[in-house]
Write a protein that binds this DNA or RNA. Structure first.
Lengths: 331, 331
DNA sequence: TCCAGGAATCTAATCGTTTAGAACGTCACC
DNA sequence: GGTGACGTTCTAAACGATTAGATTCCTGGA
């Protein structure tokens, strides 16, 4: 049992108790850069245990210029897609013995910059940015500090930044093809308020997939259940709802489901629906959503790996289509 | 514009440039404990701006023994209830100029202890624990370090810990009363796998509310959509589903909705349902969930306030019942 | 003129590590 | 016995801030 005093034990305390110098204690604790005689090592370990010694990470960080902390910036932790990503990133970092500092940028470039600034002040060892919109490149800020950055879900426009993202093109084409397989000829797309971010890529892929068909309409609303719900009600009221729809995100797809239900409109009978996020939880809607299933855990691990290794760009992960009910399949 | 060199500017650099000592620079930067002549202050500020000086928080933390970082332990960030709480906590801390370190304990006491240990090693200024189960008191760990702790959502059993939680008793009674208002006489309750945590309190409140009615059955399943979905399908198959149900959490309620739909069972016609979490997103299900609406943002702010002030226990917040469709009301 | 008192500033110790350089002892080898 | 090499350990200088205590310079009062 550790013997107690008012303040926590330091390296110097351990050294004194073991009858040696702080350097040796440090070598023992870290399997240090220099060897230590077996007998001495034993004495040090015993002293450390007895005093209940815990290294002070702050002092270590000051001296060695590395904190063991990684900053995670994301749009909104209350969105399950980002929340799940955050959890997987935190767990992957924990496995690498790193701590996670988190911040919600809430779709605002200014707030994102604010968070990156604060994280750099805190001397994080790296930055993982799960950016929603076409959030700008923070390289200008981080390069000076020499802090590596990895983007997840979506990278900045021009750069040669390290990015981990799903294969949007493939996912969209698969979704469109699947709906065509159900006999639909006109396939609408529900995009975000603008064409920034991954949703922009998805929209472009959809445009390519339905090229030249004026009957395939483009819808837009905010990335929220409420917005998609309201839009669906309005269109249903006008009789302007498409018969087949690909929604850019789970949140929007869930809003469509909710809006359709409240108008007494059957899914998939009245409107067939496929979503492109595919969070695990999307399986439990009424009816169950057919969705491409992004490998969030794998993406998180890849991002963490990329942060500490040198590979510059990961291959885009293919997201399999989880076929459930909302597309029209019997399940 | 800051003039550049390879390494970031330090206090000493600023002092040199301003022709003064590091002490004075520190006094200026912090509106320090001692006054500085106006002219000197100007020179220092100018030098700092020109060098692009940013205080090194690590060095500051080492000397002043306060990091400006707060640790947030939660069960699972991918659960929207916890995710929303996490976002609000982070934002409240940001307003207090504090950074947030996060960790997912995943319903495991061992992992919770691991995280608290790591956070204490990182010398956090405080700890906010959003604990799901009857997670044990970490006071034993934190007391030695002198780090204040606030529990959100649920506190440890015996203690005199600081806790911010909603008024579970009131919420349950209101839910039961509302279902009775719709003419239901037997009101079932869907609890968690055991009676730990806030769900245990909710279950107890339900027991009291339906006291003596053997027709009001108690159901149990994991806190996941999948588990509640499966349970509902099974009971529907056996014709054993209750006509009115209070679900302990949103996730479970959503699972019930999904299970009922897949069995062709109408909600609220076949089964009336009320949930007790009431995350904002629960409004957009098919049909819309009636739920008590926990004031997550207010709870987060209260927790942060409690962390730095001395008040010991906040009054339990009353959660208003958001009446929507799943209970049987026309909406 | 001299001195007390106060404002402004400087000097230097301190926080708890890491690690380069010097010092020491032991051994092998010529 | 002298010498170099090696293994082990110690000394002390960083890292970049904060802040007591000492010092300097002025001012006003006797």
């Amino acid at each position: 049992m550790p013997s107690h005093s008012d303040r926590p034990a330091t390296l110097a305390d351990v050294a004194r108790k073991a009858g040696t110098s702080t350097a040796v204690v440090s070598y023992v604790i870290n399997d240090g850069p220099r060897p230590v005689a077996a007998a001495t090592r034993e004495r040090v370990l015993a002293a450390a245990a007895e005093l209940g010694y815990r290294p002070n990470r702050i002092a270590r960080a000051l001296r060695s210029r590395t904190t063991g902390v990684v900053g995670l910036v994301l749009a909104d932790a209350s969105n399950p897609y980002f929340g799940a990503l955050a959890r997987h990133v935190e767990q992957a970092l924990d496995r690498h013995d790193r701590l996670t500092m988190i911040g919600n940028a809430g779709y605002s470039a200014a707030r994102q910059r604010h968070l990156v600034d604060r994280f750099l002040d805190a001397r994080v060892d790296g930055l993982i940015i799960v950016s929603a919109d076409g959030a700008d490149d923070v390289a200008a800020l981080t390069a000076a500090a020499g802090v590596p950055v990895v983007y997840v879900h979506h990278g900045p426009a021009g750069g040669r930044a390290r990015v981990v993202a799903a294969d949007n093109h493939h996912a969209v084409h698969e979704a469109v093809a699947h709906l065509r397989g159900h006999g639909h000829r006109h396939i609408a797309f529900l995009s975000g308020p603008d064409d920034g971010g991954p949703v922009g890529l998805r929209r472009a892929a959809w445009s390519a997939a339905v090229a030249g068909d004026p009957g395939s309409v483009l819808l837009r609303c905010d990335y929220s259940r409420a917005a998609a719900d309201a839009l669906t009600r309005r269109l249903a009221g006008e009789g302007a709802l498409p018969r087949a729809l690909v929604a850019a995100t789970d949140e929007q797809a869930i809003g469509v489901l909710s809006g359709a239900w409240s108008r007494g409109l059957d899914v998939p009978g009245g409107i067939a629906l496929i979503s492109l996020d595919g969070t695990p939880e999307s399986a439990h809607t009424a009816p169950a959503l057919t969705a491409t299933r992004q490998p969030l855990r794998a993406m998180a691990e890849q991002a963490v790996g990329l942060l500490f290794d040198d590979a510059s760009r990961a291959p885009a992960a293919r997201a399999p289509l989880a076929v459930r009910r909302s597309c029209g399949c019997q399940k």
